[in-house]
């Protein structure tokens, strides 16, 4: 961790009006939760739709994608990363500093709103809100690491990340049950299920499989990103 890198990354990510733009996602979730809180009907199914499908399924991956690639890919894209790489800093420290910023931002802008939305819609009953909160915490940290790695590997990081988040997890995951095993969203859900009361959250994976997978992917992403950054070639835009 290097505080200067952290500070510069925060400014690059949230400076100017960009932070306000990121605020749209949590505000949207809270607004819908407030509207939904007043409606009648099955509260449990409503909360699962809102927190599971909309929150963890759509908003969290997209926010993590924007943040995870935003902390590093934009700098690589416009070439200003060389000034950072020229400093006598180990490359892995740059990666961990940027990852820390990404993870904290995602927690602040995605996980916390999920908790609040859950409390608004469903209250604290059955630990549902807490379960989704924990699931989102874990999932958004791993998403951030994964998308940060993508940002160092390919110039089309955003598109590849979107393809993973939307095509793989949503589209293929709906039809091919095997695809769910390799889905960050499902790993997060299975952690959430362990926190919430039994029967509140459904997940397709056992906790014993999800936790090692989460750790392996997060660690591998950090190592991979550090390795990529160590031998980075700056390609011009074509």
């Amino acid at each position: 961790m290097n505080l200067t890198v952290v500070r510069l990354t925060v400014r690059g990510l949230l400076g100017r009006r960009r932070g306000v733009l990121l605020l749209v996602v949590p505000l949207l979730l809270l607004l819908i939760a407030a509207v939904a809180g007043g409606s009648h009907g099955d509260k449990h199914e409503l909360a699962v739709r809102l927190l599971g499908t909309l929150g963890l399924g759509t908003l969290v991956p997209i926010l993590c994608l924007v943040v995870g690639t935003g902390v590093i890919a934009t700098e690589i894209d416009d070439g200003s990363i060389v000034y950072l790489l020229a400093k006598p800093l180990p490359r892995w420290q740059i990666v961990t500093s940027k990852l820390a910023v990404a993870v904290l931002t995602c927690w602040l802008f995605a996980a916390l709103p999920v908790l609040l939305a859950g409390l608004i819609v469903y209250g604290g009953g059955g630990g549902l809100a807490l379960g989704y909160f924990t699931g989102t915490l874990v999932a958004s940290a791993v998403y951030s690491a994964l998308f940060l790695l993508l940002g160092t590997v390919t110039r089309n990081a955003v598109v590849v990340g979107l393809a993973y988040a939307l095509v793989w997890e949503s589209l293929i995951g709906n039809f091919v049950s095997g695809a769910r095993t390799l889905s960050v969203q499902q790993w997060g859900l299975s952690v959430g299920r362990a926190v919430a009361a039994p029967g509140e959250i459904t997940a397709h994976l056992a906790l014993g499989a999800a936790v090692p997978l989460l750790l392996v992917v997060a660690l591998a992403s950090v190592l991979g990103a550090a390795h990529r950054l160590a031998g980075l070639t700056l390609a011009g835009e074509e």
Binding site: S39, R49, L59, I62, T69, T74, D77, L166
Partner: peptide, 27 residues
Amino acid sequence: PRRGFGVAAIMGVLVVSQAVAKVLYEL
């Protein structure tokens, strides 16, 4: 002027608006 932000913003608007409309429709 940044391609990455542009891609994410367009996808965000198209996909999130769809998800939001679906949830509101069910609500």
